[in-house]
Design a protein around this nucleic acid. Structure first.
Length: 402
DNA sequence: GTCAATTCACATGAAAGAGACCACGGTCTAGTG
DNA sequence: CTAGACCGTGGTCTCTTTCATGTGAATTGACGA
């Protein structure tokens, strides 16, 4: 019995694959040509061009929603610059790319700095040193020779939200202390309003040049998908209306190309898994649901126990109580649960923050409302669709042993 | 009926503590020649 | 004599608590028409 089940799975893989080269659809893949971004690439290139001669360019700040090609374009241009410099046999340019959003990699001032240093080929302990010691280490390293260090800080808004903008100020001001080396900053942000709540000094030095990446529209997304799918899939696999539908779905999500590619890839995987020779609309719909579902469940699963307990409280109240829910009720339920499963209960202050975090994650929707004499509170609405909700409840019941 | 004061139930902020992790330098210990 | 084990100190980081302050509309109660 076991054997036949395995046979079925492996057979569907060993047969003709509908993929020709799946890697093309992965987000890490850098395409040879970038469509519909000529203008932006030119702009980035002309701003950063002085780096070709080892001169400090203007600090650049790039905005745009997720999946609009910001990172791609900046990396493309800096790679070209680096290639040219290296081709001429020089090595006065260092390009360092840091994604500030990756947890445990770069979400504190110390770690960002450590990350830069390790990109320069030096080691620095993961913790244990005073931050200013790391700064002087950094200065010492780059001062060893005359060079230009181009630091690209991706998702910089995330970092600043967590740390404060102080480190950006220090970083921009560092140049006046350096004799040999120069630092050039490129900030990439998803949030359009990010610049507004920065310290004015940082704003002026970081935003010497600014660039906005508009979202792709549905037609542009179609072009991109056609290009990539040509390489990714075998011939005659795609139904005609798959790409338009796919780009329409993604365009609805503020023109996110990454999402569109993901969708296509997952749809392909689903089709392949079911042994289908064709990628039809049906698979696209399934993929759309699956991505959403996996994302949510993944988030829930990886939350700490206390957070899960709060979420479980919300889930169970959501069914029994009348909507909407308020903080007080959730907290009471939470304390009750803590007693039954012998957990230490957190303070209301903390639970309040946890609820706010869930809102950020999109698991729930929260409005702060004032109910007059009934005080001020959060109105909590659960955002999980029915199937996900059920699955989440099962998962939490199991994980928390309730 | 109108209007300002009151009041509720939290939201929101700031500061500080606990506990985990880690580097560094000094001291102790056991193995080596 | 020396390498490695071990310890104390001092640093970061995350999660949490404690204390303090803020908030916005329903409610209240005084006031005047």
């Amino acid at each position: 019995m076991m054997g036949s089940a395995l046979d079925k799975i492996f057979d569907s893989y060993s047969g003709e694959s509908i993929f020709k080269n799946k890697r093309v659809l992965q987000i890490s893949h850098t395409p040879v040509t970038i469509s519909h971004r000529d203008q932006q690439i030119e702009a980035v290139a002309s701003i950063l061009a002085p780096a070709l001669k080892g001169e400090r360019a203007s600090n650049l700040f790039v905005y745009g929603k997720t999946g609009t090609g910001k990172t791609l374009c900046v990396q493309f241009v800096t790679n070209e610059i680096l290639k040219r410099v290296q081709d001429s046999g020089k090595d006065f340019l260092k390009v360092i790319y840091i994604n500030c959003k990756l947890k445990k990699v770069a979400d504190t001032e110390y770690r960002i700095l450590a990350e830069i240093i390790s990109a320069l080929g030096e080691r620095v302990p993961a913790t244990g040193l005073p931050t200013d010691a790391v700064y002087s280490r950094f200065i010492e390293i780059i001062e060893r020779k005359k060079q230009l260090v181009l630091v690209i800080l991706d998702e910089i808004d995330q970092a600043v939200k967590k740390i404060s903008d102080g480190f950006l100020y220090t970083l921009t001001r560092l140049n006046s202390e350096l004799k040999n080396a120069q630092i050039n900053l490129v900030g990439i942000s998803n949030s359009l309003t990010f610049m507004d709540d920065l310290d004015p000094r940082v704003r002026s030095s970081l935003g010497e040049e600014e660039l906005v990446f508009p979202p792709y529209n549905a037609l542009q997304l179609q072009d991109i998908l056609r290009e990539r799918s040509g390489e990714a899939f075998a011939e005659n696999v795609l139904d005609n209306d798959v790409i338009p539908k796919c780009s329409a779905l993604a365009a609805r999500e503020h023109g996110d190309a990454r999402r569109a590619l993901d969708l296509l890839r997952v749809a392909g995987e689903l089709a392949e898994r079911e042994g289908s020779k064709k990628l039809t609309l049906e698979f696209l719909d399934k993929a759309n649901q699956k991505i959403e579902r996996d994302k949510m469940l993944d988030i829930i699963q990886n939350e700490p126990k206390q957070h899960q307990l709060v979420l479980y409280s919300i889930l169970s109240l959501h069914d029994s109580e009348k909507n909407p829910l308020f903080t007080g009720a959730v907290y009471n339920k939470y304390q009750e649960l803590c007693q039954t499963c012998k957990f230490e209960s957190l303070t209301q202050r903390r639970v309040s923050d946890i609820i706010a975090e869930f809102d950020m994650l999109g698991l729930i929707n929260v409005d702060v409302i004032s109910r007059g004499r009934q005080g001020r509170t959060r109105e909590i609405k659960l955002m999980l669709p029915e199937p996900i909700k059920t699955r989440a409840r099962e998962m939490l019941t199991e994980g928390l042993m309730i």
